[in-house]
Structures are given as structure tokens and as C-alpha cells.
Design a protein around this nucleic acid. Structure first.
Length: 557
RNA sequence: GCGCCAGUAGCUCAGUUGGAUAGAGCAACGCCCUUCUAAGGCGUGGGUCGGGGGUUCGAAUCCCUCCUGGCGCGCCA
């Protein structure tokens, strides 16, 4: 139940204050001492020309028939404070939470489709921690929107086009024919850049090889396809461990044969003009630099492919929203892209949304760079984290048969949560030590709390609950359980999984306080039943919330 | 130079559509396992919310200005 709305409705029903001015004023109290929610009357004071104190007093006087969930109302310094009937609210909140069961049903299908472009790996380049954010943010948004009843389309817009692949082929045929791995491909790429500094003719050779790929030359295409398979097999393993899925792997090369149509369309609509030898769409009147469509030599550019991709996605999926989970370096690019779509007359341009996130750099080593090999591979970080978890489990002397499963869930969870716990937009300095810290606000903390709930539930006998517990710790927990849906909706609205992460930390902290201060299983069957019901509601809420941020919830750890 | 974003405790960050005394975690120190998982809990210390001005009954939050940092600004993606 939305208690703020209910309270608002009740206040308005009194007819003491203007309805329009009251909407949205009610907030949850910061301090439980001041009640559970309150109406600050200062804004009303301006409209009604009465002092806030007088308004609060007048309202209080009118409230002779409180709704069932409100116990008392107080007027304090211009605030009208509502104290909830805790037993009543607890019963309602825990009751409806338990009704959802262990796995919450998704919202009913809303008939809307959302495309989410994320991860977007580059062929033959290492899958490193720089890709972690786009991968897990996108993967989490995918689950959040699916939960909310959207049809979701996850798109891995592969980086499988460009002169870089000419370079790779050059290096391959010169120094590395035969079986390749991701590592050996990276070595080839790094070696090319080193040698090309001394021998510029290598660049010409690279252009030649890329031209061959473009023309569909058999030898070039075969080798390139092999590189693609090697890459996808490698990153596929990481996706599996992270629980990331895609519905499409259409990358840059996929749009190759759709580019000329886009260019023609731009011409036809009078948007394309020649500038310094290149073809551009001018955006001066929107205070933006021009959007480059074709190079001097007639070759297409990034924007050209993205235009083709957006149009293709609209045609194919008829999306209601089209998300791009791409680093903020490309803010301008997407602004230009969406503006050009708008100028082309596509009203759906407004549904295209760039979801930017911050830069990842390496502790001590600065920016990540594929060229000089300054990378930390995602698979290595995950593996280190899982190994550390195994060591902890061994130390705790719990050689359970599920040890491997738990280590995998917790190790991966630590890495994933580390990436999803902070606001998207902040830059992140990656530190393995920090990623491997399992104390405090971390994924393992959430998982531990969940396992703790499971352990208690296994030992106690659940039964018909009567809620007499109304102390602050218990009630804080109840309020948090009730906030689950608002939290998910807010995360979706802002495309910000970290809102769910923060919420789950709050929930786990509240439960751990509750757990320490309240003996859950005791001789008193009524109290035991009530506390177990709360524990189960917490467990289920944690588990379902964790799934939305890609965290597994083992029963034990 | 212009544009966008960021600046909150030693560190990492919440809080930013204005509401009551600015909150967590990490690190440090001190406590709590003969009762449900100590990957936990409690306590202590730690703040010019980048600076200054303004709007307001009320500002970390809104406006102006300055400082610092990051990113972007034509043929890479």
C-alpha cells in the first residue's frame, strides 16, 4: 500500500486545505520521533495566508475519524505529523509481501518494448574492466524493465568494423598465422602498433586488408570470422557467469548494406551538405557541431551506422524506448544522433535515450588502453574474486557440497555489486583490493544477510502471525519492505540500478539490527511466528531485489 | 576558447523535483560469539556539503559568480 497517497487522500477529504496545493507535499519523516509521515504546512501558508502553525492545528482539529493505519496525529511547529498504527501497517505490509511468494511475479505485460544497447564488445580486443559498467548496468536494466512488464530486447552492438581489423589481419599474416587465442590476438595488435611506428608502410598494408574485408575477399573474411568466433566464445563465458543475456548480436558490420539508404534519405530530405570535402548534417542552429556522415573519401562513419541501427531497430522491434548504455564520452555524439533523427522527421527520436556512465581507470596506471596492453581482464578479476571466496569458505571450515556454487555466486556478486553500487555517472578508479573487499556495503553482505534469513527460517516453525512488535527497529524494517516497488520504479525511471543496490543495503542493515536485537525463535510461539514472517518477507524481498542487480542468493554461505 | 558533467568525513560514496539535528561503508581505536550464520552488531573520533554572493519561513539541494578536476568540441569508435 502507498501510505503517502492514502494519507494525502485522507487530508484532502477533510476539505480544510486546497486540494491542488496539497498534492505531493507529504513526505516520510526523516526521524521516527516526528511520526511516520508528515505534511509541512509552510507552502500552504502562502496560499492560504494563515500561519503554518494555524493550518496544522486546524487540520488536526478536523481529524476526528482517523483511517485504520493511522494511530495519532500531532501538530508541531507547522508540521502535521502522522503516527501510523504499527501493528496494522505491519500486518498489511508483511501479509502482502508474503503473498508474493519466493519469486515475485513480474508486473503484467504493458505491451511496451524497450531496446537496450549494452556491453557492445569489440572483436579481438580483450574484455576488460572498462566493459564492466556497460555490461552490468545494461544487464540490470534489462531485468528491471522485464520485471516491470516490458518486452525487452538486449542488443550487443558488436564492434566488428573498422580499419583496426585491417591492422590485425596485417599482423596475423606477417607474424602469427595459425591457431589464435584472445591473448595472442592482443599481442598481435600491440605488436602492430609498435612496429608501425618504425615502419609506416604497415599502415598502408592495413588499409589494404581492410579494403579486402569490405569487398568480401574470401581469405580476409574467413580469418576475420574466425576472430569473431574466438571473441564471442570468450566473452560468452563471462556473460554466463554474470547472468547477462542478449537477444541480438547485430554489430556494426550488420549495418553495412543499410548505410547507403540512410545517406540517400538524408540527401532526399535536404539535410546533407558538403563541408570541407566531407558530407555533414549541419546543427549550428542547435548549438552543436555538425554531424559527420561521410568522410572525404566517401567512407561512412560512426554516426552513419548508428543512424542506420536506430532506424533498423524501430522497424524491427517498434520500440517504445531505445536505450544506449554507453560511456559519457559520447554525450555529444548521441545528442547529435538524436537530433539528426528528429530532423529526419522521426517522431520516435524522443524515445531514444543515452544512458551514460563514468570512466574506469586503473589504480596507479591511469587510463585503460588496448594499444599498450594496459588492461585488466574482467575474467581475471572475477576469477580472483571467486578464488578469494573459496579461501574464506575453507577458512570457515565449511566443506559443504555447495562450496563451489557458493564461491561462484559470492565471488561474482562482489564484482557485480561493486560496479552497480554507485551512481552511474561517477568515474571509477578500479582497485582489485577494493573489488575483493567483502565487508560492509558489498554484494557478499547482501548475500550473507539473505543466507542468515534462510538459516533462521530453516530452524523455526512458521505459523499464524500476530504483530505485536512495534519497536523502531522492527517498524523500520517493515517500512523498507513496503518500499520495494517504489524503489524499482524509481530505478527504472532514472535508469539507475544503484537505487536498488542502496535500497537493498538499507534493507539488509535494518534486518541485521533487528536480528541482533530480537531473538526470533523463542518459546513464545506467537512472537516467533510474527518475527519469522518478517524474516521471510525480508528474505523474499532481498532475493528478488538482488536478482534485479544480477546477484544470486545462495541459501547458505 | 566554447560546451557538458562532477566537487559532501582521511578514502569510497548516499542524500540533489527545497523541509525538522547532513547519513552509510572502508580505514583507526574499543567492545559483543556457552542461544537463531561474527562475511555480523554496538560504540568513539572524524564536516567551511569546493569558495563567495543571492532567492526563501527554510538551501548540500534553486539562481549568479569564481576555483578545481574529468570529458567532449570534423573526417576514430
Amino acid at each position: 500500500m502507498d501510505y503517502l497517497k492514502e494519507t494525502e487522500k485522507y487530508i484532502i477529504s477533510k476539505g480544510v486545505i486546497p486540494e491542488e496545493e496539497t498534492r505531493g507535499l507529504i513526505v516520510y519523516s526523516a526521524d521516527l520521533k516526528n511520526g511516520d509521515c508528515c505534511l509541512p504546512c509552510f507552502k500552504l501558508s502562502k496560499v492560504m495566508r494563515i500561519s503554518p502553525v494555524a493550518i496544522a492545528e486546524k487540520l488536526k482539529a478536523s481529524m476526528t475519524d482517523l483511517p485504520p493505519f493511522v494511530e495519532k496525529v500531532e501538530s508541531v511547529n507547522g508540521y502535521l505529523n502522522f503516527y501510523f498504527d504499527r501493528a496494522e501497517v505491519t500486518k498489511e505490509v508483511i501479509g502482502s509481501a508474503l503473498k508474493r511468494g519466493e519469486n515475485f511475479d513480474p508486473y503484467p505485460q504493458n505491451g511496451k518494448t524497450i531496446c537496450i544497447d549494452y556491453s557492445s564488445v569489440n572483436i579481438a580486443k580483450p574484455f576488460h574492466i572498462g566493459h564492466l559498467l556497460t555490461t552490468v548496468i545494461g544487464g540490470s536494466l534489462y531485468r528491471i524493465f522485464k520485471f516491470l512488464g516490458y518486452k525487452t530486447v538486449g542488443i550487443n552492438h558488436l564492434g566488428d568494423w573498422g580499419t583496426q581489423f585491417g591492422k590485425l589481419l596485417t599482423a596475423y599474416f606477417r607474424w602469427g598465422e595459425g591457431e589464435q587465442t584472445m591473448d595472442s590476438l592482443l599481442e598481435l595488435y600491440v605488436r602492430f602498433h609498435k612496429e608501425a611506428e618504425k615502419d609506416p608502410s604497415l599502415d598502408d598494408e592495413a588499409r589494404m586488408w581492410f579494403k579486402k574485408i569490405e569487398q568480401g575477399d574470401k581469405k580476409a573474411t574467413e580469418v576475420f570470422e574466425k576472430f569473431k568466433q574466438i571473441t564471442l566464445a570468450e566473452v560468452g563465458k563471462v556473460y554466463d557467469r554474470l547472468g547477462i543475456v542478449f537477444d541480438s548480436y547485430n554489430g556494426e558490420s550488420f549495418y553495412n548494406d543499410k548505410l547507403s539508404d540512410v545517406v540517400d534519405e538524408l540527401k532526399r530530405k535536404g539535410l546533407l551538405c558538403e563541408s570541407e570535402g566531407a558530407m555533414v548534417v549541419k546543427l549550428d542552429e542547435f548549438d552543436m557541431p555538425p554531424c559527420l556522415i561521410l568522410k572525404k573519401d566517401g567512407a561512412s562513419l560512426y554516426a552513419t551506422r548508428d543512424l542506420a541501427a536506430a532506424i533498423y531497430r524501430k522497424k524491427t522491434y517498434d520500440f517504445d524506448k531505445n536505450l544506449y548504455v554507453v560511456a559519457y564520452q559520447q554525450n555529444l555524439h548521441f545528442k547529435q544522433l538524436f537530433k539528426v533523427l528528429e530532423l529526419m522527421g522521426y517522431e520516435w527520436a524522443k524515445d531514444c535515450i543515452h544512458v551514460p556512465f563514468g570512466m574506469v581507470s586503473l589504480e596507479g596506471a591511469g587510463a585503460l588502453s588496448t594499444r599498450n596492453g594496459n588492461v585488466v581482464k574482467l575474467a581475471d578479476v572475477i576469477e580472483a574474486s571467486v578464488q578469494k571466496t573459496k579461501a574464506i569458505i575453507a577458512r570457515k571450515n565449511q566443506d559443504s557440497p555447495e562450496a563451489d556454487f557458493i564461491a561462484e555466486a559470492v565471488g561474482v556478486g562482489a564484482v557485480v555489486f561493486g560496479a552497480l553500487s554507485g551512481g552511474r555517472i561517477k568515474d571509477m578508479v578500479f582497485s582489485l583490493d577494493k573489488a575483493l573487499n567483502f565487508d560492509g556495503e558489498t554484494g557478499p553482505y547482501l548475500q550473507y544477510t539473505h543466507a542468515r534469513c534462510c538459516s533462521v527460517l530453516e530452524k523455526g516453525k512458521e505459523g499464524e502471525a500476530e504483530f505485536g512488535d512495534t519497536d523502531d527497529e522492527t517498524f523500520a524494517l517493515v517500512r523498507l519492505i513496503n518500499a520495494f516497488d517504489d524503489t524499482v520504479l524509481s530505478a527504472a525511471e532514472k535508469y539507475e540500478p544503484s537505487i536498488i543496490s542502496r535500497y537493498l543495503i538499507d534493507l539488509a542493515q535494518a534486518f541485521n539490527k533487528f536480528y541482533i536485537d530480537h531473538r526470533i525463535i523463542s518459546d513464545d510461539t506467537k512472537t516467533t511466528a510474527a518475527r519469522l514472517a518478517i524474516t521471510r518477507a525480508v528474505k523474499n524481498t532481498l532475493k528478488n531485489g538482488m536478482a534485479l542487480i544480477l546477484l544470486k542468493a545462495p541459501q547458505k554461505m
